[in-house]
């Protein structure tokens, strides 16, 4: 945040960068600003590479593809994983518990789950993307095609040729 010109300020700046305590501003497509720690923002490979490339950290990062509600939820995940340690067994268990509760809550609101999934993909937040896509996959797992269509409201649009091919595959499965 502070851009000092003296050697002491530069050293302090470097130290701040080292410890990840520098603050970064992310702005949603509705213009709402969210101030997060650099450690939290670095959960996103997209932002991480912009910061490391000497991007304009002070001006902040506008995210034209992410709305405020989604960004707030994404930041909740990044804060937990970026700001907390995961060295001891207890710390890792606490993070696993956070993930479990986090995804259970999202799973109850599919539209929101998909928004967060898309944002995780766009921002390249590996852990969050793995968590949300696995959650969607778990809903699909073990279901027949008809059950999948029902669960997700997918319209039946297969042609006669598709049906023929699927029948052919089915005799093998």
């Amino acid at each position: 945040m502070a851009t000092g010109s003296g050697a002491a300020a530069a050293a302090a700046d470097a130290e701040e960068k080292e410890s990840g305590s520098r603050m970064i501003t992310l702005t949603s497509n509705e213009g709402k600003a969210f101030v997060v720690t650099e450690a939290s923002a670095r959960q996103s490979a997209t932002i991480r590479s912009m910061v490391d490339d000497g991007g304009c950290v002070d001006k902040g990062f506008p995210l034209p593809n992410v709305d405020s509600k989604t960004l707030a939820r994404v930041i909740q995940y990044c804060d937990e994983h970026g700001n907390k340690e995961a060295h001891t067994v207890d710390e890792r268990a606490a993070l696993a518990k956070f993930d479990k509760d986090f995804i259970a809550e999202l799973d109850a609101d599919k539209a929101f789950l998909y928004d967060v999934t898309m944002a995780a993909n766009y921002l390249h937040i590996q852990g969050l993307f793995a968590l949300t896509t696995q959650c969607i996959a778990d809903t699909i797992k073990g279901k027949t095609p008809e059950e999948i269509r029902t669960a997700f409201g997918i319209e039946y649009d297969l042609t006669a040729q598709d049906e023929e091919e699927i029948k052919e595959e089915d005799t093998h499965a």
Binding site: N65, D67, Y122, T133, G153
Partner: peptide, 29 residues
């Protein structure tokens, strides 16, 4: 609604609004 999702999905078919890369990752999981 986020702008990342594809527009033009019908009815409740929200999952088909996800882009191909995301759906491939879901299948891969």
């Amino acid at each position: 609604m986020g702008k990342l999702r594809r527009v033009g999905g019908e009815g409740n078919d929200l999952i088909s609004e996800l882009n191909d890369d995301v759906l491939v990752r879901v299948l891969d999981s």
